[in-house]
C-alpha cells in the first residue's frame, strides 16, 4: 500500500514543469547536487569532529561539552542545507528515486542516525559536567559516537550508489526485490502472470 502511495506521489511530482526543468537544466541540477555534496564538509565535517572527540581520539584537551555545544550551530546549518538540497534533488527525479533501493536504505539509516543523535545528545548533556576532560569518555557515549559514524557512512554509501542503475526496477527480479524497491507495476505483472 505504502509503495503505491509513494509512487503515486512521485508520479504527480513528475508532472510538475519545475521538476522536469530542474532535471533537464544545463547547470542548475549540477549546482544543487554540488552544494549537496560539498556541504558534507560542513555537516559531516562537524559531526566527525564531535564524534572523534566523544570517542576520545581528537581534541582531548578541549572539554567534550564545549566541542558539542560550539560545533552544534555550524553542524545544524550544514544539515539544513543538505536537507533542503536533498529534497530539491528528489523533486528533480522523483519516480526513479522513489524506486531506488539505495534511496530507501538511505532514508532508513537517516532515521536511525536521527534517533541515535537524539538519544546521544541527551546523554551528552546529562553527564557532560562529570567527564568533560576525562581521558576516556564513558562507554555509552563512545558507543553513541561509533553508531553515529557508522550510520552516516552507510547514508553516504547509499547516497553515492543512487547514481548507478545496477538495481533499477528493470534490472531486478523476484517479488521481494520488487516490493523492497517499490517496483509496483513490475510486481503486479509478476503476480498477474503467475
Amino acid at each position: 500500500m505504502l509503495n503505491e502511495w509513494l509512487l503515486a506521489l512521485a508520479r504527480w511530482l513528475d508532472t510538475h514543469a519545475w521538476s522536469t526543468g530542474l532535471h533537464e537544466s544545463l547547470y542548475m541540477y549540477a549546482w544543487i547536487e554540488s552544494t549537496h555534496v560539498l556541504t558534507l564538509a560542513v555537516f559531516l565535517g562537524m559531526l566527525i569532529v564531535i564524534d572523534l572527540r566523544m570517542l576520545g581520539v581528537l581534541f582531548m584537551d578541549v572539554p567534550a561539552s564545549v566541542i558539542a555545544r560550539r560545533l552544534d550551530l555550524p553542524m545544524m546549518i550544514g544539515f539544513v542545507v543538505m536537507l533542503v538540497t536533498g529534497f530539491v534533488l528528489y523533486y528533480a527525479i522523483p519516480v526513479r528515486t522513489t524506486q531506488s533501493i539505495w534511496f530507501r536504505i538511505k532514508v532508513v539509516f537517516l532515521i536511525a542516525a536521527g534517533v541515535n543523535a537524539f538519544l546521544f545528545r541527551a546523554r551528552m548533556q546529562d553527564s557532560s559536567a562529570s567527564w568533560d576532560l576525562a581521558p576516556r569518555p564513558p562507554r555509552n557515549i563512545r558507543i553513541g559516537a561509533a553508531l553515529s559514524l557508522t550510520f552516516w557512512t552507510v547514508v553516504v554509501i547509499c547516497g553515492r550508489a543512487i547514481a548507478y542503475d545496477w538495481f533499477d526496477c528493470r534490472k531486478l527480479d523476484g517479488a521481494f526485490m520488487y516490493w523492497a524497491a517499490g517496483c509496483v507495476d513490475e510486481l503486479a505483472a509478476l503476480e498477474g502472470g503467475a
Binding site: 560542513v42 565535517g45 559531526l47 566527525i48
Partner: peptide, 12 residues
C-alpha cells in the same frame, strides 16, 4: 567523500 568531510571539518 568521508575523507572530504573529515578534511573539511578540520579545515573549517
Amino acid at each position: 567523500l568521508m575523507g572530504l568531510a573529515m578534511l573539511g571539518g578540520m579545515v573549517i
